[in-house]
Amino acid sequence: MSAETDADVLVIGSLNTDLVIRAPRHPLPGETLHASAVSTLPGGKGANQALAAARAGARTAMIGAVGTDENAQVALSLLRESGVDLRGVDALEGPTGLAVVTVSDDAENSILVVSGANAEVGADRVRAHAEQIAAAPVVVLQGEIPREGIEEAARHCTGRLILNLAPVIAVDPAVILAADPLVVNEHEAALVLEQLTTGQDAPAEEPRRLVQRLRAAGVRSVVLTLGAEGSLLSEGEPGVLVAVPAAPIDAVDTTGAGDAFTGALAAGLAAGQGLREAARRASRFAAFSAQRLGAQSSYSRSGDELPALPGPAEG
């Protein structure tokens, strides 16, 4: 990716190939089950979010790495098709990241990830793109590349930093405090809170309290995702929380729905929307994806088809 890129959203993160297995339920330890279907699809939290941002209307670029195996073409296929700038994605000798996803009949998923080339997206590789990072209006980070790469990206970011610390890994607290917003689910919120409170275990708390404690710890803004219950937002005055509903749908597969939300949120913020407005459209984008199998393959290609949220009509 050249220094002259005009991307609205720059995603720095993972690219995987997803091996998606459909089964009646998740197997118990030592148990063998018959699966009903298997698919090989593009994935990775970084790539998912980049595709979602692009399909939500943002000019999008990505920094990351794939391997030199046949899975690399799978991992890049929909990003290329959707016009994501991939000049910052390096091809490294070795395997592309791989995720094995089991989806049960009740739409819940379990995921095992082998990092592959994603493990090489450290400080040096990220630093090579310092000018592009500094020029990006919105930078999006997740937890599927090494800590050093995340911290290096945050150091060069001069725009708005969206941190979806998933999975939760230990990072410099300054990165978390720079997030605007920090996007996490309940489990992730508790783990991030432990990092900001000198490593003390965070007690189980209801969602509103988790958001309030993250803000009290110094996080600029927070979006706490709650699945079928929508999300909670907090920005500005720490004590003020806003609830954003989820669209009422019949979920088929929740794989990648959180990434759909984060990518669409980034697109909305890059377009100048406020956090609440951006989160409402992101909620609709995520709901659409949960009605279809797979992650990237389930993302909307047209805002006209998004399900409506309860309450006032969407504009």
Rank of each mutant, 00 (worst) to 15 (best):
S2P: 06
A7S: 14
I12Y: 09
I12D: 01
R22N: 11
R25Y: 14
P29G: 06
E31M: 03
L33P: 01
H34Y: 11
V38R: 14
S39Y: 15
S39T: 15
P42S: 10
P42H: 08
G44S: 02
G44A: 10
K45C: 02
G46N: 08
G46C: 02
N48D: 11
A52V: 06
A54P: 10
A56I: 01
R59Y: 11
I63G: 02
A65W: 08
D69A: 06
N71F: 15
A72E: 04
V74R: 09
R80P: 03
E81R: 15
R87T: 00
G88D: 10
D90L: 11
L92T: 01
P95A: 14
G97Q: 07
A99T: 07
T102L: 15
V103H: 08
S110W: 00
D124N: 12
A128S: 09
Q132W: 03
A134M: 05
A136P: 12
V138R: 03
V138C: 05
V140T: 04
E144G: 05
E144A: 08
E148G: 11
E151R: 08
E152I: 01
A153F: 06
A154F: 13
H156P: 09
T158Y: 08
L163I: 12
A166P: 04
P173W: 13
A178C: 01
A179N: 01
V184W: 03
E186D: 13
H187L: 12
A189Y: 02
L191G: 01
E194S: 05
Q200S: 09
E205H: 12
R209F: 00
V211D: 02
V211I: 00
Q212M: 11
R213H: 07
R215K: 11
S221E: 12
V222Y: 00
L224S: 09
L224R: 02
E229I: 00
S231R: 02
L233R: 13
S234Q: 07
V242K: 07
V242S: 13
V244D: 00
A247D: 08
T255M: 05
D259E: 10
T262W: 01
L265R: 02
A266Y: 08
A278C: 12
A282Q: 04
S283Y: 09
F285K: 07
F288H: 15
A290L: 06
L293E: 15
A295I: 07
Q296G: 13
S297E: 15
E305N: 02
L306R: 03
L306K: 04
G315W: 02
